[in-house]
Design a protein around this nucleic acid. Structure first.
Length: 409
DNA sequence: TCTGGGGTCCTAGGACCC
DNA sequence: TCTGGGGTCCTAGGACCC
């Protein structure tokens, strides 16, 4: 029996949450951005702004050119996470087979459950009614229903905003010739370009291409392409409860001109390492592999290197020292950088106090946990290292938690 | 005017061990 | 004498997602 997969995608999510929270923002073009007054980018545009052509990932200046009356709003991460928790708690009552794909997107396998609600369309309408009650009329979702994830997402995109779309198993084959490969989640610009150059433009073209060729060109990914070209996508819905744990924890920051000198950038990096350590301790992980990267010029190349430590850590200073060790190994030693970043992978769950850490580190561990407790109570900025005071000139960003797994529901 | 920040997965080569 | 093959770990790079 064919599966029934529902994809639910919140409409203009961050912008809608802001409009719901603040009536003066309703009915006008607004856009959520990281830094409203600097040369940043749009994270989310309201539907009024989208009508002028404003899209996410567009530089603010370009958005303002398209839509001079656009109101830029600073994003508030906590607000979006809280709203996501609320709608997830509604959805999990409908089925336990619920995959949190990002902060505003969910896949559900409703093969078993939809019958109880008068079929998938009835279920979708009920969910949208519940959302309106619980979240307010400005926060809406679009629902796509299909026999697999790729087509459920596709059909949701085609019914935005605030719509419901369904694609039945028997309807898919007749649509393959009109769906462009780039419309499929998983086929990005590079792969689309490579396929286009050999004359493959639609899913039907893809389906007619030999599996051998696709495998030779794209490795295991070629098998996925062949399936998609035939209207199939065997990828299962992976429920939140069985999803793989976080694999890496990182932070990076684009630097304003006054902090681009390399020695100042290192101070910013010190603060980023602290934030990474803090988040790891919150998540209960220690990690062994540290990746340090930086960027030269706004459009310049990334340089980065990783090392694996002989021990695991969740301590900001240890992570920072690892970055310095990496830096000494990098052949490029720039005078100035436009971005620095650090991420820790090779994570394991932290066990008891003495499991991984050396005795000489136990004092530091106690210090970290005391600092964490104070920050839990009085906020992240209650205690900062001297260097971290530099963050006062760099506003906090939003938009970077799209695929994080730090919201429980 | 010149671009954010958070992730995931896959591949491939070299080192090292048995 | 000096050769085999499998497995794991590490690093780098490319592609994708929101």
């Amino acid at each position: 029996m064919a599966r029934i997969i529902m994809h639910l995608d919140m409409d203009s999510y961050f912008a809608s949450v802001e409009q719901q929270a603040n009536p003066t923002l309703r009915g006008i073009p607004i856009a959520v951005t990281g830094r409203p007054h600097e040369s940043s980018i749009i994270v989310a545009a309201s539907r009024e702004a989208k009508r002028c052509g404003v899209k996410s990932a567009m530089p603010n200046w370009e958005a303002l050119k398209l839509c001079p009356s656009l109101k830029l709003v600073s994003g508030k991460a906590e607000r979006y996470i809280a709203t996501t928790k609320r709608f997830l708690s509604i959805l999990k009552r409908y089925t336990p087979l619920l995959e949190v794909f990002s902060i505003d997107e969910v896949f559900m396998d409703i093969t078993q459950e939809s019958r109880r609600y008068g079929g998938p369309l009835g279920m979708a309408r009920l969910i949208k009614d519940e959302f309106r009650e619980a979240l307010g009329e400005y926060i809406t979702a679009t629902v796509g229903i299909a026999p697999n994830k790729a087509f459920a997402k596709l059909i949701a995109n085609r019914n935005k905003p605030n719509g419901i779309g369904q694609l039945r198993d028997e309807e898919i084959s007749s649509l393959l010739a009109e769906i462009l490969i780039g419309d499929i989640c998983g086929i990005g610009r590079r792969i689309e370009g490579r396929l286009n150059r050999v004359g493959i433009h639609t899913l039907a073209d893809l389906g007619h291409t030999s599996e051998r060729y696709l495998k030779q060109e794209f490795g295991v990914y070629g098998l996925f392409l062949k399936e998609i070209g035939q209207g199939r996508d065997p990828t299962p819905v992976i429920p939140y409860t069985t999803a793989a744990p976080v694999k890496s924890v990182g932070h990076s920051k684009s630097l304003p001109p006054q902090l681009r000198a390399f020695n100042l950038a290192l101070l910013v990096l010190r603060g980023l390492c602290d934030k990474v350590g803090r988040r790891m301790r919150k998540l209960g992980y220690v990690g062994r592999t540290v990746y340090f990267h930086f960027r030269l010029g706004s459009m310049g190349p990334h340089h980065g290197k990783q090392i694996t430590l002989p021990f695991s850590t969740d301590d900001g200073e240890t992570i920072y020292n690892a970055c310095l060790a990496i830096y000494r190994k990098i052949p490029v030693h720039p005078d100035s950088v436009s971005q620095v970043g650090v991420s820790v992978s090779n994570l394991t769950e932290k066990r008891g106090r003495s499991g991984y850490l050396l005795t000489k580190d136990q004092q530091r561990e106690r210090l970290n946990s005391a600092v964490d407790r104070i920050r839990d109570r009085f906020g992240e900025r209650a205690i900062v290292t001297g260097e971290t005071l530099l963050f006062d000139v760099i506003p906090e960003h939003v938009g970077g938690f799209s695929q994080g797994k730090e919201w429980e529901f």
